[in-house]
């Protein structure tokens, strides 16, 4: 608490609150708007922020239930949103589990062992993670196209290809977990190894239980990143029933036929769980995002 206080402090506090509230209104307007539109009739944007003609049509369609209008016509759901969401969740679950598995073992070796090529490979990982996957999409496409000729579940238009391709992005997570491992004192494992545990046992029974929190964080981080992945999925997936949400959602706002209301419901439905998960875990996620990638 500062001891010396200027006199105009109350005025300045009021000003700060006002400007923050004003800024927040501006920032949150799009999000509130979408929630409002999802409950509004029709696919055009007119009306007030609190819907006048309240309707659950868009929500029913987003949940895949055909909706009967008051004039008797039945509207079919335009897109399989729940299927897309399930595809996204499926891919994200498997790939983030694999990512946690791969990055934990690597981080253990990087944090606790000395071996040839450790420094260069850590630095190399930092450099290579900055190269965006969009630029090597041609090569990735060629790779999976050819792999698919021999291994069916790894071809173009399979979720297997998408999952496997996401395993390239482990560098960030390795750095995060490595940082956490280094903050744990090694003497516990040393004691275990003096008592006859192997390196693997020391890792599995001593270090791993201690680092569950960071593994959860990495899992959630990888999960969110996988849900939001767009470029790879847009090239690797073709059929409508195979798409992930990130690729499928844009079809609502095709240039010639905008389904604004339907999109709003689908967006809230699929965006809300991810947003809430992010906010609940924000403390750890943000720690990982800001400190893990680059240690300043």
């Amino acid at each position: 608490m500062a001891m010396v206080q200027p006199r105009s402090i109350r005025l300045r506090k009021l000003g700060a609150h006002l400007s923050l509230c004003g800024f927040l209104t501006l920032i949150l307007f799009p999000l509130l708007l979408v929630i409002s539109i999802s409950f509004r009739e029709g696919n055009f944007a007119t009306g007030s922020l609190i819907p006048e003609n309240f309707s659950l049509e868009h929500w029913a369609l987003a949940l895949g239930i055909p909706w009967e209008r008051t004039d008797g016509s039945v509207v079919q759901p335009p897109f399989p949103v729940l299927l897309w969401l399930w595809n996204s969740v499926k891919v994200a679950l498997v790939s983030s589990l694999l990512i946690v598995l791969l990055s934990t073992t690597s981080a253990y070796a990087f944090a606790r062992m000395r071996f040839a090529g450790k420094g260069p490979s850590l630095k190399g990982m930092l450099i290579f993670q900055m190269f965006p996957a969009v630029l090597s999409l041609v090569a990735l496409y060629a790779l999976f196209d050819r792999l698919g000729q021999f291994v069916g579940w790894l071809g173009i238009n399979t979720h297997g290809a998408l999952i496997v391709a996401s395993l390239g992005a482990v560098a960030l997570h390795i750095w995060t977990i490595k940082g956490y491992f280094e903050s744990i004192d090694g003497s516990l494992e040393e004691a275990a190894m003096v008592d006859g545990a192997s390196a693997w046992q020391a890792f599995r029974y001593i270090l791993l239980p201690l680092s569950l929190p960071i593994l959860m964080v990495v899992f959630i981080l990888a999960f969110v990143m996988s849900i939001m992945e767009y470029p790879m999925a847009s090239v690797l997936l073709v059929d409508e029933h195979k798409l992930t949400l990130a690729v499928g959602a844009q079809q609502y706002l095709a240039d010639h036929n905008q389904r604004w209301g339907n999109f709003a419901a689908a967006a809230v439905l699929s965006g809300l769980p991810i947003t809430v998960a992010f906010l609940i875990c924000q403390r750890w996620i943000i720690g990982g995002l800001t400190a893990g990638g680059v240690k300043g």
């Binding site: 791969l102 073992t105 690597s106 062992m113 395993l167």
Partner: peptide, 20 residues
């Protein structure tokens, strides 16, 4: 311990880069 992660990066980051 590091082989799976390094192999993943080699296959899906470094190889596509060189191939490109």
């Amino acid at each position: 311990y590091i082989f799976p992660a390094v192999a993943g990066m080699a296959l899906f980051v470094i190889f596509p880069l060189l191939y490109t």
